[in-house]
């Protein structure tokens, strides 16, 4: 068996966007792009659900997460990546194979296929995935997690990345209001309008002001603009200056930065990144994704026993048939400790 290529190792939080961050972002960006393509292929070939034929990665989510402090021990920052963004999970150290296992509902996935698809929670890696049918729940949950960070005086912050449509949900406003009232280290990022986002006309800056929290807007920009904005919000958060609401405007091209060319070019020209290094980064990212895709078909599916794990830490699950023996009026009931029925 070919060993799985090492995932991206989370780095320490950098103060500025330097070459190390640039290389990370390049790697993660390429990885997300290759992963997107492979997921679409696997969906078309019915290895993954057909609905995933239109799978998209919003690479901005990768940049957002990279600006946070990742970890693999449950002590890093926390991120809610939105339902269509594996980017943060990858930026926080997950491998493409782990992501595909989860997406495909394999028995080897982190939740043994009891949860799958595009909602992925891995608290060790600081990922809290989509977990409720309406927008806003994640903002509430992450606000509470951020409260816990502050309560314990930890150098941690939480980031929630949702579509602008969250604005239409009362739950989102409850979460942001609570975060503002408690002044917790939370960064709330709302992405540009996308399909199905309805027709709200809210001025997000005014929304932030109404909740008494800081605001920042990132326009049609490349990663080098998003990264420092989030990094600054994180500094504010862990310094006890409260939450920040960040509006991400549409970056064009469906927010996909289809080829990363602009950023790659920037890295090569301004940071002096040699072309061959860029090529090596691209190949390393591709290798990880290709390994994952090839490996996926060999991963075992879940056992029905996996469905019968306790729903509470101390609950015994039961199989569908509730009578342990066929009913027989003349015989004692199963597990009878009282002797034969006194009705006889």
């Amino acid at each position: 068996m070919t060993p799985e290529p090492a995932g991206h190792a989370p780095n320490s939080f950098p103060a500025t966007l330097g070459s190390e961050v640039a290389r990370d972002l390049l790697y993660l960006g390429f990885q997300a792009r290759f992963l997107e393509a492979r997921v679409r292929d696997l969906a078309r070939s019915e290895v993954l659900h057909a609905d995933l034929a239109g799978f998209r990665v919003d690479p901005r989510s990768t940049v957002l997460a990279r600006a946070m402090r990742g970890g693999t021990d449950g002590k890093g920052d926390l991120c809610h990546p939105g339902p269509l963004a594996p980017g943060p999970a990858l930026a926080f150290g997950a491998t493409p194979l782990e992501f595909l296992r989860h997406l495909a509902g394999k028995g080897t996935s982190s939740a043994s296929a009891r949860e799958g698809g595009l909602s992925w929670t891995d608290l060790r890696r600081g990922i809290i995935g989509w977990g409720a049918p309406r927008g806003g729940t994640a903002t509430q949950v992450l606000a509470g997690a951020a409260f816990a960070f502050r309560q314990r005086g930890e150098d941690r912050a939480a980031l929630v990345f949702e579509r602008r449509s969250a604005l239409q949900s009362g739950g989102w406003h409850e979460g942001v209001n609570l975060a503002g009232a408690l002044g917790v280290p939370l960064i709330v990022v709302l992405a540009a309008p996308q399909t199905g986002d309805g027709s709200d006309h809210a001025d997000i800056e005014a929304v932030a002001a109404s909740y008494g929290i800081a605001f920042a807007r990132v326009g049609r920009d490349s990663p080098e603009r998003i990264f420092p904005t989030v990094a600054a919000a994180r500094r504010r958060a862990v310094n006890g200056e409260g939450p920040t609401l960040i509006e991400l405007l549409d970056a064009g091209d469906g927010n996909r930065w289809e080829h990363h060319d602009a950023f790659a070019e920037l890295a090569v020209t301004e940071d002096g990144l040699p072309e061959q290094v860029l090529d090596a980064i691209r190949k390393a990212a591709a290798a990880g994704v290709e390994h994952a895709a090839a490996r996926l078909a060999k991963e075992p599916g879940p056992s029905t026993r996996d469905a019968l794990v306790p729903v509470c830490t101390d609950a015994a699950p039961h199989p569908p048939w509730t009578r342990r023996d066929p009913p027989a009026p003349d015989t004692p009931a199963p597990n009878d400790a009282m002797g034969p029925p006194h009705a006889e």
Binding site: Q140, A143, G144, A145, A146, A148, E174, G175, N177, L178
Partner: peptide, 22 residues
């Protein structure tokens, strides 16, 4: 903690705090 009048919001926040060990 005196919360805003938003049962959904503060119950959700409680879930996040519980995730983090409180």
């Amino acid at each position: 903690i005196d919360t805003p009048i938003s049962e959904g919001g503060f119950t959700g926040a409680a879930a996040g705090a519980a995730h983090m060990g409180l």
